[in-house]
Computed example of a mutant assay.
Amino acid sequence: MVLATVVQTQGSVPREVGAKMLIGSDGFTFGTIGGGAGEAKVIRQAEQVLETGQKQMVIVDLTGAAHRDTQGICGGMMQVWLERWTGAAAQTLAQQILMRLETGQTATLVIPFESNQSPYLVDTDVGVLSGSAINDENTFIGTLQPPPTLLIVGAGHVGMQLAKIADMIGFQVMVQDDRSEWANSQHYPQATKIFAELTTALTDLATHPQLFAALVTRGYQYDLAALTGLLQRPIPCRYIGMIGSKKRVRQVLQTVEQNGISRSQLQSIYAPIGLDIGALTPEEIAVSIAAELIWVQRGGSGRPLSEKSD
């Protein structure tokens, strides 16, 4: 495989520093560094790296300048580092990265630009977000974050559709519901864990650093139990959203507050859940919730891009 890593950007570009893509000798690719002509150029150069083993930096010019060979008109430029990963050492390093990420730990990867040095892991994080990086003329250092986990409480129609979309956008999906006829691997093939008991789920995820929770339950009492437990975690959830009418939401929040949860904690709840896109069907509601998850995770404005000024 060749690992393509965006190591520097300037101006408007489709992907951030740290974005990665794998290119295999059989034409297989995984991930993207932005698509279009720029990515096609990177893939062509990666084929050379696969053959020769010689690392190289590729400049993707997206300025649209008439006097240059540009690969797009986004307005900026990207530097993409290409390096072949092969053999037992690369396999071991890949396994070490996976082991850390799968257990909820970060993995800080150092990529030397020197021809006689190979990538390696260090124990110090360089940032808190995926793609956080430090680079100079000789080295690129980037911290990979484990995938955020979405706990779906309530395994009904909305939950099933939300699991599909959440998995697609990079969340590790877990589900909790006491009804085995709903909460099962047939309905939730994306789920890495399915919990029958809420207490088990809360205990298992008590110290998870990146927990998002979507409460799409079948009733008031289930919302109340889940919300109370999630707000008492030692590590606050990145996101808690709760489905329901404004009346149901108000009743749940009032009861939780009466049970000793502070009002400031309740202000962090996204309820009713999702962005206002006029969603009606379970599929549309799932899209609305997923959009809110991305909004919270990435820090967007939530407004139409057509209203955004340059």
Rank of each mutant, 00 (worst) to 15 (best):
residue 8 Q to L: 05
residue 8 Q to W: 14
residue 10 Q to Y: 08
residue 11 G to I: 10
residue 11 G to Q: 12
residue 13 V to S: 01
residue 15 R to N: 06
residue 15 R to G: 00
residue 16 E to I: 10
residue 19 A to L: 11
residue 20 K to L: 11
residue 22 L to K: 09
residue 24 G to Q: 11
residue 27 G to L: 07
residue 30 F to N: 09
residue 32 T to K: 08
residue 39 E to N: 08
residue 41 K to S: 06
residue 42 V to L: 10
residue 42 V to P: 09
residue 42 V to D: 10
residue 42 V to M: 07
residue 44 R to L: 14
residue 44 R to D: 15
residue 45 Q to R: 15
residue 45 Q to N: 08
residue 49 V to R: 04
residue 49 V to Q: 10
residue 56 Q to D: 05
residue 63 T to L: 03
residue 74 C to P: 02
residue 76 G to Q: 03
residue 76 G to H: 07
residue 78 M to H: 04
residue 81 W to G: 02
residue 81 W to L: 11
residue 84 R to M: 01
residue 87 G to C: 05
residue 88 A to W: 05
residue 89 A to P: 00
residue 90 A to I: 05
residue 95 Q to Y: 00
residue 97 I to L: 04
residue 98 L to N: 09
residue 99 M to W: 09
residue 101 L to R: 06
residue 106 T to K: 06
residue 107 A to V: 05
residue 108 T to E: 08
residue 109 L to W: 03
residue 112 P to Q: 01
residue 113 F to H: 12
residue 126 V to E: 04
residue 126 V to P: 05
residue 127 G to F: 02
residue 127 G to C: 00
residue 130 S to D: 15
residue 135 N to I: 00
residue 136 D to Q: 03
residue 139 T to P: 00
residue 144 L to E: 14
residue 144 L to Y: 14
residue 146 P to E: 07
residue 150 L to T: 04
residue 151 L to K: 04
residue 151 L to R: 04
residue 151 L to A: 05
residue 153 V to E: 01
residue 154 G to F: 12
residue 155 A to R: 05
residue 155 A to D: 12
residue 157 H to G: 04
residue 158 V to R: 10
residue 159 G to L: 08
residue 162 L to Y: 03
residue 163 A to P: 12
residue 167 D to G: 14
residue 169 I to T: 07
residue 174 M to S: 01
residue 177 D to F: 14
residue 178 D to I: 02
residue 182 W to G: 00
residue 196 A to V: 13
residue 197 E to N: 09
residue 197 E to F: 13
residue 198 L to K: 03
residue 200 T to P: 00
residue 204 D to N: 07
residue 207 T to D: 14
residue 208 H to F: 01
residue 209 P to H: 12
residue 215 L to W: 13
residue 216 V to S: 05
residue 217 T to W: 14
residue 217 T to M: 06
residue 219 G to F: 12
residue 224 L to A: 08
residue 229 G to C: 09
residue 230 L to D: 10
residue 231 L to K: 04
residue 232 Q to G: 00
residue 236 P to W: 12
residue 236 P to Y: 12
residue 236 P to D: 11
residue 240 I to L: 11
residue 241 G to C: 09
residue 241 G to V: 11
residue 242 M to V: 09
residue 246 K to I: 13
residue 246 K to A: 06
residue 249 V to L: 02
residue 249 V to Y: 03
residue 252 V to C: 11
residue 255 T to K: 06
residue 258 Q to I: 02
residue 260 G to A: 05
residue 262 S to D: 14
residue 264 S to D: 13
residue 268 S to T: 15
residue 268 S to L: 14
residue 269 I to Y: 05
residue 271 A to S: 15
residue 271 A to F: 09
residue 273 I to D: 02
residue 274 G to Y: 05
residue 274 G to L: 04
residue 274 G to S: 04
residue 279 A to W: 06
residue 280 L to T: 13
residue 283 E to H: 13
residue 283 E to I: 01
residue 286 A to M: 07
residue 286 A to H: 08
residue 289 I to G: 06
residue 293 L to P: 09
residue 293 L to Y: 09
residue 294 I to E: 03
residue 295 W to G: 00
residue 296 V to F: 08
residue 297 Q to V: 01
residue 298 R to T: 13
residue 298 R to G: 02
residue 300 G to N: 06
residue 302 G to M: 10
residue 303 R to F: 07
residue 305 L to N: 04
residue 305 L to M: 15
residue 307 E to P: 00
residue 307 E to D: 15
residue 309 S to I: 13
